[in-house]
């Protein structure tokens, strides 16, 4: 087991210097999500304009993987079409399952691929993405079945 596979440089960078952390003054949706098995918490706020993720913020507390994944997710979806954000979410989940995933689409998120080799930590990496799926569900969209 290689710890460096899990804790890649870019992950530690997002953990120590999280992007888009904080609260939005105006948000369409605010989702609070907890991981009941470990106590990690995240609040995700999204502002959608013209079908685009115009702004996004998160705050919460958790391990390096959950917080880095949240930070990287916000960077990846900001300015993207909501549909594109949901596509990223699907590809991210595929990557977590160790299934085939579109790495071109995932970009920097590929750094989290090592998590798939640490089954106990997958739920850490998917916490923020579960919040994103909830945002989409609350907006009336369909929830990806693999989000639970």
């Amino acid at each position: 087991m290689q710890l460096d596979d899990l804790y890649r440089q870019v992950i530690m960078d997002h953990y120590t210097r999280p992007r888009n952390q904080g609260q939005l003054d105006e948000a369409d949706l605010t989702i609070d999500l907890k991981n009941p098995t470990c106590g990690d918490e995240i609040t995700l706020q999204v502002l959608v304009r013209d079908g685009l993720v115009d702004d996004v913020r998160f705050h919460g507390s958790g391990c390096s993987i959950s917080m880095a994944s949240a930070s990287m997710m916000t960077e990846a979806i900001k300015g993207q079409l909501v549909e594109r954000a949901m596509e990223l979410s699907r590809e991210f989940r595929n990557m977590m399952k160790g299934a085939e995933a579109d790495y071109d689409c995932l970009g920097e998120l590929e750094a989290l691929s090592g998590v798939a080799k640490f089954p106990a930590r997958i739920k850490c990496a998917t916490l923020a993405w579960n919040a994103l799926e909830r945002v989409q569900a609350d907006r009336g969209g369909k929830v990806d079945e693999s989000s639970s």
Binding site: M1, L3, L6, Y7, C38, D40, G62, C63, S64, I65, F118, A120, R121, C124
Partner: peptide, 12 residues
């Protein structure tokens, strides 16, 4: 250091 991260390093 979050306890999960501690536990992962210890597991290694």
């Amino acid at each position: 250091v979050h306890p999960h991260d501690v536990a992962t390093v210890l597991d290694a």
